[in-house]
């Protein structure tokens, strides 16, 4: 691929990633929000492919497709308005958040533009995957082991937190099903 095509593809994916990322918080539907986030992640995955990080790009798309799928399931389960048929604004401290987000963007991009980073590109894309594999699973396997143990602990913790029945009986004992009409004066 010529350099021009790579640049063009990069800008398409970059604008796509940021735009869909922004739309996540501007849509009325929870399901749309999670798939817009997926679109943003897929765009970032495509940029990674352009940067010759082949394994990471595809792995990101692969993992995030499943993750956002689960996200959408929870969305429909918990939220009102999953189909986005009614307009919906559920925000607080909107102005403060916008200022904070913009400040984060300015600060980080100032670092990115002004700081002097070395210019040492990947020498040749061949063997990138193999070197990553050796780093991940070679010698002491530190990252692999710690991430594995972390994920195992997470699974156990999540099951303990969310399981129906615990040591002291059913988790929802004494709770009541959500009412069809909102309670007066808020939730409690």
């Amino acid at each position: 691929m010529s350099a021009f095509l790579v640049d063009l593809a990069f800008w398409v994916f970059a604008v796509g990633a940021v735009w869909t990322g922004y739309r996540v918080f501007r849509t009325d539907s929870m399901v749309r929000a999670s798939f817009l986030l997926l679109a943003s992640l897929v765009n970032v995955g495509a940029i990674m492919l352009l940067l010759s990080a082949e394994y990471l790009g595809f792995a990101l798309i692969f993992m995030m497709a499943l993750e956002m799928m689960v996200m959408a399931l929870f969305m429909v389960m918990f939220m009102m308005n999953p189909a986005g048929l009614n307009p919906m604004v559920m925000v607080h401290q909107n102005r403060l958040s916008a200022v904070a987000g913009f400040a984060a963007f300015l600060g980080l991009s100032a670092v990115g533009v002004l700081a002097d980073f070395p210019d040492r590109p990947v020498p040749e894309p061949v063997g990138v995957v193999a070197r990553l594999g050796e780093e991940l699973l070679g010698d002491s396997m530190l990252v692999f082991e710690s991430v594995g143990v972390l994920l195992l602990a997470t699974m156990i913790g999540a099951v303990a937190l969310s399981s129906q029945r615990g040591r002291y009986g059913a988790a929802d004992e004494g709770s009541e099903p959500p009412p069809m009409v909102p309670r007066e004066g808020g939730a409690r």
Partner: peptide, 24 residues
Amino acid sequence: FRTGIVVWGAAEALAIVAIFLHGW
């Protein structure tokens, strides 16, 4: 692709999304 199996997995995972969207 050097990561053909991962590409296949990504296609499979996105296919699940496609089926969900078709029903939603």
